[in-house]
Every structure is written in C-alpha cells, then in structure tokens.
Amino acid sequence: MNTRFVGDSALLVDTENAQAAQQLRAAIHRQSLKGLRELVPAYNTLLVEFDPLEFDVMQFIRRLPQFLKTSPLRNLVREHDIEVTYNGEDLKEVARVTGLSVIEVIQYHSAATYTVAFLGFAPGFPYLAGLDPKLQMPRLKSPRTQVPAGAVAIADEFSGVYPQATPGGWRILGHTNTVLFDVSRPVPALLMPGDIVHFRPLA
C-alpha cells in the first residue's frame, strides 16, 4: 500500500477509489488510535493527520493492510431529490463550450444519477460522481471571490453544491434552497458519502 509523508504530522495513503478511501477511514476510525487527529478521504487517497508526539506512525503503517481487511460498514444509503432553479451565471458559457443548447445542458445535468463520492473543500460540500461526460469541463481559470450558498455547479467529472457562501472556481448552472449543512442537526451534512442524489429542475 503506497503511503507518503506530508510534513511531520500527516500521511497520505493511496486507495483504489473514493469508496475504498471511505471504507479505510471507517476502519481506522473504529480503532480510536491515540494521537490521531483527522482522517480526510477524497478521490483516491486518505489523508491521516496526527500528533507526531503521541501517534506511532510507523506502527500505523505496518497495521494498514490489516485495517483494510476489516469488513466494510454497510452505511444506510439515502436518496435525495434536490430542486434546482437553472439560472446559473455559467449556464450559457457551458452551453457554448459544449456545443449544446441551454435546455440540453439542463436536461443532461438533471437526468443523471449522482453518488456522493466524498465531502471536501468546505463544510458539507459534496463531490458528486456521475456527471454526464458531455458536460465535463475544467473549472474557471480564475475563481470567483464569492459564490452564493446553494449554487449548483460542475467541474471536471463532478457536480457539487456550495453549502455556504465561499470563494469558488466551479461553473454555476443553478441554485437550490436546500440547506446542505446545518450544525444544529445531529449529522450536520445532509449529503453523506455513498448517498444518491437527483437534481429536479424547477420551472
């Protein structure tokens, strides 16, 4: 299993895919290891952050294959319908670059079935796998300093929704009123890794 140190307090572990990164996180999390600070699963890596004065990282690396063998937790997969008003700032530009009409862009984006691959960037921001290849394009060259909360956007092979107003470089297709992250909920993130998401266009 390929691992690389990131500074003196973190280790990056390569995984086969996003789902494997989530399963490895769950397996390590169950161990309650002393000095472990954060486990950040992403596209095909798991970042392990630790307190180097408390955490035995060499022993951890030796035990990694064993963590992988533990049976994966079967998470309850939930399905979500998210209503979208397709009036995004980049809708016309996406249509122009892809050679599609605006209507077709909306159809391709809302017809797909998405899976939450991982949460990253900002609190509750879902990286949604399943974007139609016709809509795949790189993020903006120069990110916007402020993207509004609820912006539904695309970048590369993902779609996503901005839970808070933050800077951002994804191309905005529309907006939703669905609250994605609420700290007063027991699980603050509405969309969790593995969940299924459909976008429903509002007239």
Partner: peptide, 10 residues
Amino acid sequence: LRTQGIVSGA
C-alpha cells in the same frame, strides 16, 4: 492533482 486532503503549512 486528484482532489485530496491538505494540511496547514503546506
């Protein structure tokens, strides 16, 4: 890069 976890000080 493929999106991955990042640390302070990077």
